[in-house]
Every structure is written in structure tokens, then in C-alpha cells.
């Protein structure tokens, strides 16, 4: 139907225009601001400022917390996705809906409710106190930020894992058992490698927002713990230094690109 080049260009032009205005131009602007100073002259100083101790510390902490929350998300999501996919429970859709349900609420609201739960005089500690158990002083620590990240981004890990696991034919798993593999060997040698594409997209979809977040760290960290996302946000909203903010964004982009390239290479290695 749309084999004609001209027709296909006309049909796709709204999307091309959208991509140009809302994706290409903003990225171009980030590059422009990041590579210039206030006078408009070309400079690498904004990017080099990542070497400043407070910036590099924020970057490494962000990477560390993003890695930890990605790992926790994976460890929580994989067994759940496996159970959902292999038992074909999703056919009734209830469990899938339950997983997606939290996403219907604004994520700031969800994070805020965790603050209420974890506060030093919050819901969790009231319950622990009533049970005469030791109190948990976790709010405003990196651990609280990880809790927020895991809670907010867990569905993004479950869904791609579920999709790739559901695609594995029962006969392939039967074949592994038939050839003598026990459940653990089947998981390790067959199910895990066959679900690699899902693992890679799940990791990407959790790692990148965790790495760049500033809202979760602001709320759960009580503005005391700065991640690279918070530093960039402050450059734009507090000190109005768009050049420095853009420069640091470019550095962050490098890490995102590395993550995606690694995913793509691993994915192609499968073919």
C-alpha cells in the first residue's frame, strides 16, 4: 500500500516533524549549551567540571545506587516473571494488572507515600514500636533512595522479562528435561540465556531512569544526598547555569550510550 516512497514520506512526515522538534532540536540545544560558555565561546570546561570532587562524587554515587537498584529489581522480578510466564497465569490478566496498577498513580505521589512509610516517626516505625521491635532509621539515607528506585522502576523490569519468558516454547523446556537437565540446570542453561533480550531491556529500562533521577533522591534522601541528577537539576533551577548543567548532562549521556551499546552487542551476540 505504502510502497511508493513519496507516499510513505507524506504519511510519516508528522512523526518526523515531531521527532525533529521534540527530540533532535532539544538534544542539539544541550550540545550547544554544554560546549559553550556564557559569552557563547566554545569550551570543554563544562564537561571537564565533572572532575570536580562534588560532581564526580555525585556521579559515582548515582552509578552505584542505580546498579544496586537494578540488581535488586532483577532479583525480585525474574522469579515473578518466570512464575507468571510459565504458569500462563497472565491469561486472566489479573496479575499483570496488579503489576501495572501502581503505575496508574503519579510516581511522585508513590515516592512521597514511601517517605510517609519510612519516616523516623512514620508508619513502619509505629508498627515496629507497637511490636516492640527495633526502630528502622532509614529515611534520608542512600538505602531509602534505593527503596524508592526499586519500587518505582520494578514494573519496567518485570514486563520485558515476562515478555521474553512467555515467548519460550514449553517444548524447549520439556526438551531440556528430556535430555536429563533438572530444574536448576534447565533454568541456567536454557531459560536464562533464552530470556537474555528481556534481561537486557529490563536492565536498561531500570538503570537509565535510576541513574538520572533527581526526584526520588530529593524526596527519599531529604535533599542531603546529591546524585548527579540533583546536581544537574540545581544548575538549571537554582544557579541558572545552563551551560554547566548541559555539560554534566552530556557526561551522563555517555554512560547511557555505553549501557545501550553493551545491551545491543550482547543481544546481537545471540544470533
Amino acid at each position: 500500500m505504502f510502497t511508493n516512497r513519496k507516499t510513505s514520506f507524506v504519511m510519516s512526515s508528522p512523526y518526523l516533524a515531531w521527532a525533529l522538534i521534540f527530540i533532535i532540536v532539544p538534544i542539539g540545544m544541550v550540545f550547544y549549551y554544554g560546549l559553550t560558555d556564557t559569552t557563547g565561546a566554545f569550551t570543554f570546561e563544562n564537561i571537564a567540571s565533572i572532575a570536580q570532587p562534588e560532581h564526580s562524587k555525585a556521579l559515582w554515587l548515582a552509578i552505584e545506587l542505580a546498579l544496586i537498584s537494578t540488581l535488586i529489581c532483577f532479583l525480585l522480578a525474574y522469579p515473578l516473571a518466570l512464575i507468571l510466564a510459565r504458569n500462563k497465569m497472565s491469561s486472566d490478566g489479573i496479575l499483570t494488572t496488579l503489576i501495572i496498577l501502581p503505575m496508574w498513580m503519579n510516581f511522585l505521589l508513590r515516592t512521597l507515600s514511601w517517605v510517609t512509610l519510612l519516616e523516623n516517626r512514620g508508619v513502619l516505625n509505629s508498627i515496629l514500636g507497637a511490636l516492640h521491635l527495633p526502630q528502622l532509621y532509614i529515611i534520608n539515607t542512600p538505602a531509602a533512595i534505593v527503596v524508592g528506585m526499586v519500587y518505582d522502576f520494578l514494573p519496567f523490569m518485570i514486563l520485558p522479562l515476562y515478555n521474553s519468558l512467555a515467548k519460550i516454547d514449553d517444548a524447549v523446556i520439556n526438551a531440556a528435561q528430556d535430555l536429563g537437565a533438572n530444574k536448576l540446570q534447565t533454568l541456567w542453561h536454557v531459560i536464562l540465556p533464552l530470556s537474555l533480550p528481556g534481561i537486557l531491556s529490563g536492565v536498561t529500562m531500570v538503570f537509565i531512569p535510576s541513574l538520572t533521577t533527581f526526584a526520588i533522591s530529593t524526596m527519599m534522601g531529604g535533599s542531603k544526598i546529591l546524585l548527579i541528577g540533583n546536581v544537574i537539576e540545581q544548575e538549571f533551577t537554582l544557579t541558572y547555569n545552563w551551560h554547566l548543567g548541559s555539560g554534566l548532562s552530556l557526561v551522563l549521556m555517555v554512560f547511557i550510550v555505553i549501557n545501550m551499546v553493551v545491551s545491543m552487542i550482547s543481544d546481537q551476540g545471540e544470533d
Partner: peptide, 11 residues
């Protein structure tokens, strides 16, 4: 067993 749709390990 030899399965209907072969069920080879594609990886």
C-alpha cells in the same frame, strides 16, 4: 523425545 516443532535450543 523428538518434539513436534523440533524444540532446538536456538541460543
Amino acid at each position: 523425545t523428538v518434539f513436534q516443532k523440533y524444540a532446538l535450543f536456538t541460543h
